[in-house]
Nucleic acid binder design. Structure first.
Lengths: 87, 87
DNA sequence: TAGTTATTTAGACAAATATCTAAATATTAT
DNA sequence: ATAATATTTAGATATTTGTCTAAATAACTA
């Protein structure tokens, strides 16, 4: 839960998730869309991976990233539960 | 969106929201349930208030806090949109 | 009015975070 | 084998964040 919210708490990372929603992309392809160095993007991708929000698969010299939204269920459930009135 | 995720990215603040779901509480009442100084809790409450997640009403010498979940719609919508497959 | 209670503001500090450049690793191509 | 390409790892640095104590503000109470 913590790792998840941590991963979501950055505009660049949220934008990466939005991009991966459209199509799978390699690390370099993702990095090219930002004015941020490749190592920094690599670090963001690592955090997203740690949170389970993306899955990385090595294909030759590329590493392809894809979105994994199943882990968001936990967040969704928490928010919905909070929204349901108890008073 | 940023302020919102920022506010949610802390276990203490999320716990405060969970507590406020049960009933409205004063700042001191909230602080009493944590092993954290009152000024620190006051700061957490301020961040939650800035994000619109809580509403504070002064009543005499007390300040009562209540949950406001309407602002979570934005987050909810974003997550759901991300979850809906596009590929 | 003086003291007590509730809460915040101010200022300091350590830890976490986002970023960078340089170097390392791994794969493909010549 | 060498060079080029894709990505990560390492290490440094500035900023942000969570926490603290001390002081300020505001509202009750005797």
């Amino acid at each position: 839960m913590n790792t998840l919210f941590k991963a979501l708490n950055d505009p660049t990372r949220r934008q990466i998730l939005d991009m991966l929603k459209e199509k799978d992309m390699s690390a370099g392809e993702i990095a090219d869309r930002f004015n941020i160095s490749k190592p920094s993007i690599s670090h963001h991708l690592d955090l997203l991976r740690q949170a389970g929000l993306v899955i990385s698969v090595k294909e030759g010299q590329f590493i392809n990233y894809s979105l994994n939204t199943t882990v968001l269920d936990e967040v969704l459930t928490w928010i919905v539960q909070l929204t349901q009135t108890n008073k």
